[in-house]
Simulated assay, not measured.
Amino acid sequence: MSTHVAATLATPRAPLTLTTVETPAPAADEVLVRVRAVAINPVDWIIQGASRIIYRWLRTPAVLGSDVAGEVVAVGEAVTRFRVGQRVFGLATGTDRARDPLREGAFQEYSTLLERLTAPTPDDLTDEQAAVFPLGLSTAACALFQPQHLGLRMPGGPASVVPPEVVVVWGGSTSVGMNAVQLARAAGYTVVSTASAENAEAVRALGAEAVVDHRSASAVADLVAAVDGRPVAGAVALGAGSTDACLDVLSQTGGTRLAMASTPVSLASLVGRRHLFPAMLPVFTRIGLATVRSTLRARRRGIRTGFVWGSSLRDDEMGPRLWGEVVPQMLADGSLRPAPAPLVVGEGLGAVQGGLDRQRAGVSAQKVVVRL
């Protein structure tokens, strides 16, 4: 039996520890990847610190992580797009319900990826750059293109409409936001967004027509002015407070669809506490009340809302199209660039826990990456 090393969550809320696990053979629709770089997302430290109440289905020991880049070392019998030795990057979904976190988690030397959620890494991208894509890109695509969210046409579809429709991205310098700006632009939409003054130019460089300061008291009015009477295809809300702000923008511009990809209250303070109980009670009460209030506001204004689950494309037709067609084509023509920029914080699986802590402490317009 072949084995490898994984950074494992042995029990809920425990620090990651290095353990030896069995190296799996890929299933028919999977590739086995030697992992060379992983990126870290807020959901990783949320799962580590609060899986008992948020990811109640997750059983430990588990391997966390969603963002993988490396090279293929084995392919399943039904795989046609990849070969052994090929560099790839993809979305690991091991922490999802009914998945296997020991086979499919990112934070280990070898991980299995579904062929339909994997793309070839171009020669001009490093593994560290490729690793910033998977979850942010997938979440942005779900928000923009899934019918239950904005339902926009995907890049490569019919020509853009005239007059051009506008997509509002609140939180354009986040990982999801930077990918949403690029995907929406590639699909032929005009994008207006928010970011801090420090990150505004980076968001414009990705294709946003206008970027306003989200900290400004006039941010909503500034976005409405940037829309300038054009039809609004919808909005993507990223970050605490973004939902209500987007509802205000949509109600003033005639938009009727809102995709929400963030909780209304940050979980960072809860995850950092020594004990979840009773600290979780006021936090989740605030989240629940804020969600109900926003939902009622949306209904009164005729705005359709929904929370985005970034890995849900695994089970719909959009996933294979995004990863098999759209992403390779956009990388080839230069309309998709790795964003945010990778912030390499260490090397080896022993550095992953430090990477989680660094991400939770806060980064701006960067993606925490560990090189393996």
Rank of each mutant, 00 (worst) to 15 (best):
S160C: 14
S251P: 03
A240R: 11
I46R: 08
H214W: 04
P163D: 04
R274I: 11
Q108M: 01
T95D: 10
T305E: 14
V308M: 01
T174F: 00
T291V: 14
A74R: 07
V35K: 03
I287P: 02
P163K: 11
Q353Y: 02
P120F: 14
T19C: 07
A235K: 03
G241V: 03
A131P: 00
Y189L: 01
A290L: 07
T80V: 15
A197P: 05
P26R: 12
D315P: 01
V75C: 13
G105M: 02
T139P: 04
Q366E: 13
G188F: 07
A130H: 01
M178W: 00
L9D: 00
A184Y: 02
A221G: 15
V79D: 06
Q182S: 03
V33R: 04
D228E: 08
A28S: 10
A233H: 09
S294M: 14
A332C: 12
D44S: 09
D213F: 10
G234K: 08
Q366V: 04
A69Y: 04
I40S: 01
R81P: 13
V212M: 06
N41L: 13
R273M: 09
A240L: 03
A39R: 00
T11F: 14
M1L: 14
L58Y: 06
L238N: 07
E22W: 02
D67E: 08
E198P: 00
V73H: 03
G90C: 09
I47M: 11
P231A: 00
Q353T: 04
P147S: 13
S216F: 11
V168M: 06
P158Q: 09
L64G: 00
R52G: 15
G85S: 12
R304D: 10
V236T: 08
F89W: 06
R304Y: 04
Y189S: 00
D333G: 10
P42Y: 01
D228N: 12
A197M: 07
E347H: 12
E71A: 03
R52E: 14
T95A: 12
T3E: 15
